[in-house]
């Protein structure tokens, strides 16, 4: 696709060595960039007149525990005028990583980054309002991490009724 070759050119010009790998899977292009250059990358593809990736369609993170690098943050970009879709990916190490926030480039990233912080514990530096979004404010832990348990309750039959009943968190009066 010529549009996405153009995108790669723009990224390579802007970031140079910052572009790590380019994958093509089922017709979708994913570009892995250096985490330190993500804001520059987003700005480059947004402002390039031949690309105009003005829309951040989605932003999320993936946890590869116990493999390292543990986290990957995905930016799904969309160009409304040219009808192109591009995915930027960056990999983060460790248990409490942080990366620059792209709120200045895409204002809709505000809530996406709050949700990633809530669910994965990845901090976004420069975010105006980084606090939990979906879980209660005093919740401990980050639920979508792979080492966070699913938290399911076993089925209560007659033989284990009392045992499970004791573990159930009943409301105190």
């Amino acid at each position: 696709m010529s549009g996405l070759d153009e995108a790669l050119n723009v990224l390579r010009t802007a970031l140079g060595e910052g572009v790590r790998t380019v994958t093509d899977f089922r017709g979708e292009t994913t570009v892995e960039v250096d985490p330190a250059r993500i804001v520059a990358a987003c700005r480059a593809v947004r402002d390039a007149p031949t690309l105009k990736f003005t829309r951040l369609a989605g932003q999320t993170a993936v946890d590869y525990w116990p493999d390292e690098p543990r986290f990957a943050v995905i930016y799904q970009l969309h160009s409304l005028e040219k009808g192109l879709r591009l995915r930027l990916l960056l990999r983060l190490q460790g248990d409490a990583p942080s990366v620059a926030s792209v709120v200045q480039v895409f204002p809709s990233a505000n809530w996406h980054e709050r949700e990633i912080f809530d669910m994965f514990g990845i901090r976004f530096t420069g975010h105006p309002d980084l606090r939990r979004l979906l879980m209660p404010a005093d919740w401990q832990g980050h639920p979508l991490r792979k080492d966070y348990p699913l938290g399911y309750e076993e089925v209560q039959f007659t033989f284990n009724f009392d045992e499970i009943d004791r573990k159930k968190p009943y409301a105190k009066e």
């Binding site: 994958t23 899977f25 089922r26 979708e28 369609a57 989605g58 799904q76 879709r85 995915r87």
Partner: peptide, 15 residues
Amino acid sequence: GAIYSAVESPRGELG
């Protein structure tokens, strides 16, 4: 590998 697939829900882009 990873894919992103979107449909038009009555509310907007459901991806």
